[in-house]
């Protein structure tokens, strides 16, 4: 029996979809069976981030309306074994799906897959409630800024209210240089304010843009700071005890080393 994890944030644009694609791919790369559900009905994006847009034929709406079997609606990843995507319908709206229907899909998927990741839409409305309906655990994505942390706090409150225990935080786009200069809220202050467990820190990595352009999740670009961070996060999800390293600033020498080791 697998585990359903909803990936959510409250605020939009903090990296939910990118994180979902990368965590899912990373889990599959370390040999786990993974199904990812795009719960952002009407504004689906996970298919393009994962480079699977041309393979999507059926969506979760087709499964709910019994136009197709669940297994048939799953899209196989192009690069990794045992990684499946259930796309969201682009024609429908978020309130066309009910929480029980989403929960049913999650229940069925976790019988077959070790990890079922649900990419939640932004906001706290119906779409969020649908995404969280079948969740056993939650991952909150936030960036170190006032608005994102405020919204994350709101979401944490709603999830706790729903009775979800395992709520973990990913601090995305942290810049060690800005923290040192006193222009970015530090990891410790974020944890102090939100008072939940930290699953990982993803440093600002411009490689994300190129990876989204190509439709190849960052974790395939081994050695980049973002990829390594997501791989560590995936290992922690599987229960491995991987300490969270202190983020180092890019100095002149590390930039030269990065320049030479870049594969692009």
């Amino acid at each position: 029996m697998g585990k359903v994890i909803v990936i959510t944030s409250g605020k939009g644009g903090v990296g939910k979809t990118t994180s979902t694609a990368n965590i899912g791919t990373a889990l599959a790369l370390i040999g786990k069976t993974v199904a990812i559900i795009d719960a952002d009905v009407g504004l689906r994006n996970l298919d393009v981030v994962m480079g699977l847009e041309s393979r999507v034929v059926f969506t979760s709406m087709d499964v709910i309306d019994k136009r197709c079997e669940l297994e048939k609606a799953l899209v196989k990843d192009r690069r990794v074994e045992d990684l499946m995507l259930l796309a969201a319908s682009q024609r429908n709206r978020k309130d066309d799906i009910k929480p029980e229907q989403m929960k049913d899909i999650c229940e069925r998927l976790k019988e077959e897959y070790e990890y079922v990741l649900v990419d939640s839409p932004a906001g706290i409305e119906q779409g969020f409630h649908n995404a969280a309906a079948g969740a056993d655990e939650a991952i909150i994505i936030t960036t170190p800024d006032v608005s994102a942390i405020r919204d994350a706090d709101r979401i944490i409150g709603l999830l706790q209210n729903q009775g979800i225990d395992g709520i973990n935080l990913i601090l995305n786009r942290l810049s060690p240089t800005l923290v040192r200069k006193g222009n970015m809220i530090s990891k410790n202050d974020v944890l102090d304010i939100l008072n939940i467990d930290l699953l990982g820190i993803v440093p600002e990595d411009t490689g994300v843009i190129a990876s989204t352009n190509r439709g190849v999740p960052l974790v395939h670009n081994e050695g980049s700071p973002g990829a390594d961070a997501y791989m560590r996060i995936a290992r922690r999800i599987t229960g491995q005890n991987i300490p969270i390293p202190e983020m180092r600033e890019d100095n002149f020498f590390s930039q030269i080393i990065n320049w030479f080791s870049r594969k692009n």
Binding site: V146, R150, D153, R154, G157, V179, G182, I185, I193
Partner: peptide, 19 residues
């Protein structure tokens, strides 16, 4: 004063109100 400290203080106040 560091802007990160200002942000943290503002955030703490706004969250107290929200909660």
């Amino acid at each position: 004063s560091k802007t990160s400290d200002i942000a943290t203080q503002r955030l703490k106040l706004v969250l107290t109100q929200d909660r």
